[in-house]
Amino acid sequence: DVEGLDATILTGPDVLKHSGHEDTFSDPLVDCKSCKSRWKADQLDNQSCPNCKSKDLTDPRPFNLMFKTSIGPVDDGSSFAYLRPETAQQIFTNFKNVLDSTNRTLPFGIAQIGKAFRNEITPRNFIFRVREFEQMELEFFVEPGSDGEWHKYWVDSRYNWWIDQGIDKKRLELCEIEKDELSHYSKATVDIMYSFPHGKEELEGIANRTDFDLGSHTKNQEDFNISSKVMKNKKSTTKLAVQNIFNKNWFIPYVIEPSAGVERGVLALLNEAYKEEKIDGKNSRIVLALKPHLCPIKAAVIPLKRNNEQLVNQAKVIKKSLQKLGLGRVMLENSGNIGKNYRRHDEIGTPLCITVDFETLENKSVTVRDRDTMQQKRLSPDELKDYYEKYFQ
């Protein structure tokens, strides 16, 4: 019930005008008159400049966070566009295109993963305040009146999804945003917070955006009973509405939006997966214990001796046969040192290491080592195929 979309990065100013971004997508900017540096007002301690400690500051003024770029050969300010500050708006403006080409009925969603851009005054906090980032958003369209139920569904669903990816639920927390702190379009928002080593950060937000978005971008707004406060849109040429199949009335769907930053999600998963383990009380190893479906390399096939042509050729055959199963990347690791190869693949999260040795040349069997338990078992070719498929499926 979800369609994928890959829309444009450049966004027309009319879209972001009616979405409210031109008026509300801003941070309070303060200038230091002494050292000429610029800061977000909420970054100041004791109303002094973080750079030179001067208190000779300007009054805060709004600074729009969108990147603007000129369109065409002449940069005279008359023709411009913005780099999209979020992936959501192109989903709304393409709503009718998706509806017409897929014949979807409510409820259904449109999802997009891609770059978003925000002209941060002072980028900081590692990946948490940057000017370019990867965003994943789902706009799930529902009938008015069912939005509360669907909002709860997506909060629960997204919370459990992060747990399924390997996040410890002890480090997750649901934070319901107070009404006086909600965005202008939101009826209700719940943030999924994660306890990073440096403190809690938002992992994902799930918002009930009501009919604000499609209501802002549709033509003939006066024909619909739009509940949100929207700007008059006289430039839209598209009706972003659906028809009730029973009474034939047209209405604007409500939207439930799960929205997450990809980088911070990956960082949370790496934080969960990274382990340093003691072995036999003396040695230690580093393990990236990612869930198997997230591991970039599913298996490493390792010939016991790198300069033995028979072992290497047999390893290539096994690597090719596993790759054909279509379960992910299989790597041929031909460096010759089994112990170091095991440690290397522990560190990058490879779940299985398959060793091709001289016994393999006799009966085609191989040794399979599990990353997490370090246990090894001998398997025949048929057993290897079954074991491999079950492990990743």
Rank of each mutant, 00 (worst) to 15 (best):
E389V: 15
E143K: 14
I110C: 05
D27E: 15
T367E: 03
T93E: 04
S228C: 13
N271W: 03
S78N: 12
L203I: 00
E181S: 14
E276F: 06
D223S: 15
P253M: 06
N271Y: 11
N249K: 12
L269H: 12
V130H: 02
C32S: 13
V366E: 05
E257G: 07
S37R: 03
R378C: 05
K316L: 06
G328W: 04
L29E: 00
A111N: 09
R38G: 03
E383G: 14
L379Q: 06
K248R: 08
I9Q: 12
D75Q: 09
N313P: 00
S365I: 13
F358P: 11
G205F: 11
L322V: 04
Y388G: 02
E347V: 08
F126P: 02
A299T: 04
K239S: 10
G109W: 14
Q314D: 04
Y387A: 14
T189K: 02
Q375S: 06
K235Q: 14
R84M: 05
D370I: 05
C295T: 15
F126Q: 08
E309G: 06
E86C: 13
D168V: 13
V312C: 13
S26T: 07
T210V: 15
A315M: 01
N363S: 00
F133H: 04
Y194N: 05
L182T: 09
E309V: 13
E263L: 15
V368E: 02
M193N: 01
L29P: 01
I113D: 05
G261Q: 12
M136D: 12
P381R: 10
R129C: 06
Y388Q: 06
K55E: 09
L106D: 06
E272I: 13
F108N: 02
D180P: 03
L182C: 03
D370N: 12
E389H: 05
L44K: 00
C35V: 01
V266M: 15
F117E: 08
S380L: 14
E173A: 15
E176S: 08
E149I: 00
L352G: 00
E202W: 07
E389Y: 07
D213P: 01
Q43I: 10
I167E: 02
H151W: 12
N51I: 02
N64H: 05
F358R: 05
V130A: 12
N307R: 05
V2H: 02
V317Y: 03
Q89N: 09
D27S: 13
C353Q: 08
